[in-house]
Amino acid sequence: MTDKAAIEALLAPIAAGRASVRVDGSRASIILDVTGLPPAAQDALEADIRAASLPGIDEVRIARTAQRIERKLIAVASGKGGVGKSTVSANLAIALARAGRRVGLVDADIYGPSQPKLMGIEGKRPEAHDSKLVPLATAYGVPLLSMGGLVEPGQAIAWRGPMAAGALGQLVDANWGAAETLVLDLPPGTGDVQLTMIQKHRPAGAVIVSTPQDLALIDATRAIDLFTKAGIPIIGVIENMAGYACPHCGEVSDPFGQGGAQAAAGVLGVPFLGRIALDIAIRTASDAGTPPAAGNGPEGAAFIEIGRQVDEWLRANGG
């Protein structure tokens, strides 16, 4: 008769401590811990175990189990469109990954998804496993799910609120594997998607993106008010498109104003996370699907610093 210890020893090089074995005569029952493994890796691991030669065993039964990962959701929001929220979301996710976090990126901008282009995976479509979407891998260690990967390129998403809210649920409740932090790129404004996210998915905190101009700040203030009334902590405010250095003469100008977001953060009593310049290098890298935070150039430094602050905030708040 083959004993439990012998089977576990034979499986150790394959399962790397993930297999718990019970032997009953010539039958082995194996509990396989697949926590953090993507579906393809789970299937491959089970196949390797079934293919192993186990002396004295005629029947192998395998049950998969996984520990529930308590994920922290970080909402990246803005009161209005056109302030660079999606660019900030992509680079924040990469900066957090570079800080050592296991991060996923949710393109929750249901009506205007742009993350597939920003993250360099346009045209790829996610698959489903056990009725859950499987995020797409990117070159930056940040898996991604977006409505942009579920509809044809250029197709308008003309949905009413409940349909958009349902789509958000499928993106957030997907098979995120080992990801411990999800960055949510929200649509602009304070509508159905934001309310559903707050009520059903309860983010740990919110990052607000604004340009320095007065109109953007008015709307950013509304976004802050929405999260504050819902009891969602404001991690901080980011001032985007803050200053433009002429590539020819080096003169710095402020086409959208200067310091407005920092001043507004001070008045509202919320942290200010920093400024991101209006830099053509950021625009060209983003259009090419190579977010600046993934590189070591000066245009990525502000994103890395903001990511460091958000990482510290998460650690200070149980994450």
Rank of each mutant, 00 (worst) to 15 (best):
R202E: 09
P188N: 01
W176A: 05
A174Q: 08
A137F: 11
C246S: 11
A245V: 15
M241E: 07
V252M: 13
L136W: 07
G250C: 15
S131A: 05
T196K: 04
L150Y: 10
L215Y: 03
P153M: 11
T138H: 01
I157T: 05
I198V: 05
V183S: 02
T228W: 10
C246Y: 10
D225T: 08
P188V: 03
L184Y: 02
L215D: 07
V193L: 02
A165P: 08
P143E: 08
A156G: 12
G120L: 13
G191D: 00
V172T: 06
V252I: 13
N175K: 08
A206V: 11
P116L: 06
I232R: 08
G161A: 14
P188G: 04
M241R: 05
P233L: 09
G141Q: 12
V207T: 06
E127I: 15
Y244T: 13
E152W: 14
L215E: 04
L226E: 00
V237K: 04
L118A: 01
G189I: 02
G231K: 01
N175P: 04
T211Y: 07
L171T: 08
I208N: 00
D192M: 03
I224G: 00
G148S: 15
A223M: 05
G231A: 04
P162Q: 07
R125D: 09
V193H: 00
A230N: 12
V183F: 03
I232T: 12
A139Q: 12
C249E: 12
H248E: 12
P116F: 08
L217H: 07
I232P: 01
K200V: 07
V209P: 02
P126G: 12
Q213T: 02
L182H: 11
L217V: 11
I218K: 14
G177Y: 01
K229G: 14
L118E: 00
